[in-house]
Lab assay of single mutants.
Amino acid sequence: ADFLSNDDYAVYVRENIQVGMMVRCCRAYEEVCEGDVGKVIKLDRDGLHDLNVQCDWQQKGGTYWVRYIHVELIGY
């Protein structure tokens, strides 16, 4: 899907992401590398560009918070 802005994409992720879902990092962020796959373990839905998504990352080996714009949804 094509999104006009980071805000549009962040809204899409916020409306669709669920705890337990698998996500792929589509934009490297601090300790999380692009392409790493993680399981969503906690969500904080306050802002669009806060650290909203806590995942247990496979490559990184452990949990880390990222923003909506850092992840793509790959289902369960």
Rank of each mutant, 00 (worst) to 15 (best):
A1P: 05
A1D: 13
A1V: 15
D2G: 13
D2T: 11
D2H: 15
D2C: 11
D2N: 14
F3T: 12
F3V: 04
F3P: 14
F3M: 15
F3Y: 15
L4E: 15
L4M: 11
L4A: 13
L4T: 07
L4Q: 08
L4G: 09
S5R: 11
S5I: 15
S5V: 13
S5G: 12
N6D: 13
N6I: 14
D7E: 06
D7C: 03
D7A: 07
D8H: 09
D8K: 12
D8T: 11
Y9P: 07
Y9E: 05
Y9D: 07
Y9C: 02
Y9F: 04
Y9S: 09
Y9L: 05
A10H: 09
A10Y: 11
A10V: 02
A10M: 03
A10F: 03
V11P: 00
V11S: 13
V11Q: 11
V11E: 13
V11T: 14
V11M: 13
V11F: 09
V11L: 15
Y12G: 09
Y12M: 05
Y12R: 14
Y12T: 07
Y12E: 07
V13F: 11
V13I: 15
V13L: 08
V13C: 04
R14K: 08
R14F: 04
R14A: 06
E15L: 03
E15V: 01
E15A: 14
E15H: 08
E15T: 11
N16C: 03
N16K: 06
N16D: 00
N16F: 06
N16Q: 10
N16L: 10
I17G: 00
I17N: 04
I17T: 01
I17A: 03
I17Q: 04
I17W: 01
Q18N: 10
Q18P: 01
Q18T: 12
Q18I: 04
Q18A: 10
V19G: 00
V19D: 00
V19I: 08
V19M: 03
V19Y: 03
G20T: 08
G20Q: 04
G20R: 04
G20E: 01
G20W: 04
M21I: 04
M21Q: 11
M21K: 04
M21D: 06
M22F: 14
M22R: 11
M22L: 13
M22Q: 15
V23C: 03
V23S: 10
V23F: 01
V23T: 01
R24V: 04
R24D: 05
R24H: 15
R24G: 02
C25T: 02
C25W: 01
C25R: 00
C26L: 12
C26R: 13
C26H: 09
C26E: 02
R27I: 10
R27H: 15
R27Y: 08
A28R: 09
Y29A: 08
Y29N: 10
Y29K: 03
Y29T: 15
Y29S: 11
E30I: 00
E30W: 02
E30D: 06
E30R: 10
E30L: 03
E30N: 08
E31R: 12
E31S: 12
E31M: 13
V32S: 01
V32A: 01
C33S: 09
C33F: 06
C33R: 14
C33E: 15
C33Y: 11
E34Q: 08
E34D: 14
G35K: 04
G35V: 01
D36I: 06
D36S: 00
D36N: 04
D36L: 00
D36P: 01
D36A: 08
V37D: 01
V37W: 08
V37C: 03
V37A: 05
V37Q: 13
V37T: 11
V37M: 12
V37H: 03
G38R: 01
G38I: 02
G38T: 02
G38L: 01
G38M: 01
K39E: 13
K39G: 00
K39S: 09
K39V: 05
K39I: 06
K39L: 08
V40S: 03
V40C: 03
V40E: 01
I41C: 07
I41W: 02
I41N: 01
I41Q: 03
I41L: 13
K42S: 11
K42E: 12
K42M: 12
L43E: 00
L43W: 01
L43P: 00
L43N: 03
L43T: 02
L43I: 11
L43R: 00
D44K: 14
D44I: 04
D44L: 05
D44G: 10
D44T: 15
D44R: 14
R45Y: 02
R45A: 06
R45S: 13
D46S: 12
G47T: 10
G47N: 13
G47A: 09
G47W: 04
L48H: 07
L48A: 12
L48M: 11
L48C: 11
L48W: 04
L48P: 14
L48N: 09
L48I: 09
H49S: 09
H49L: 06
H49R: 06
H49E: 08
D50Y: 03
D50S: 13
D50H: 10
D50Q: 10
D50C: 08
D50V: 04
D50N: 10
D50T: 08
D50F: 02
D50G: 15
D50R: 12
L51G: 09
N52T: 06
N52W: 06
N52R: 09
N52I: 05
C55G: 04
C55N: 01
C55K: 02
C55A: 11
C55Y: 07
D56V: 09
D56F: 04
D56P: 02
D56K: 14
D56A: 14
D56N: 10
W57M: 05
W57G: 00
Q58S: 13
Q58Y: 02
Q58T: 10
Q58W: 03
Q58K: 14
Q59V: 09
Q59K: 11
Q59L: 09
Q59C: 08
K60T: 10
K60S: 09
K60W: 04
K60A: 12
K60Y: 10
K60L: 13
G61H: 09
G62V: 07
T63G: 03
T63Y: 06
T63D: 05
T63K: 07
T63S: 13
T63I: 08
T63V: 13
Y64T: 11
Y64N: 04
Y64M: 13
Y64A: 12
Y64G: 13
Y64V: 11
W65Y: 06
W65P: 06
W65T: 10
W65L: 01
V66H: 07
V66W: 02
V66G: 01
V66I: 05
V66L: 06
R67S: 14
R67P: 11
Y68I: 01
Y68P: 14
Y68F: 04
Y68R: 03
Y68G: 08
Y68D: 11
I69L: 08
I69G: 12
I69H: 14
I69T: 12
I69F: 15
I69D: 13
H70T: 04
H70N: 15
H70P: 00
H70R: 00
H70C: 15
H70W: 00
H70A: 05
V71G: 00
V71R: 02
V71D: 02
E72M: 06
E72G: 03
L73A: 02
L73K: 06
L73T: 01
L73E: 01
L73F: 12
I74Q: 15
I74R: 10
I74W: 06
I74L: 13
I74M: 09
I74C: 12
G75Y: 11
G75K: 14
G75M: 06
G75I: 04
G75E: 11
G75T: 12
Y76E: 15
Y76L: 14
Y76R: 14
Y76D: 14
Y76F: 11
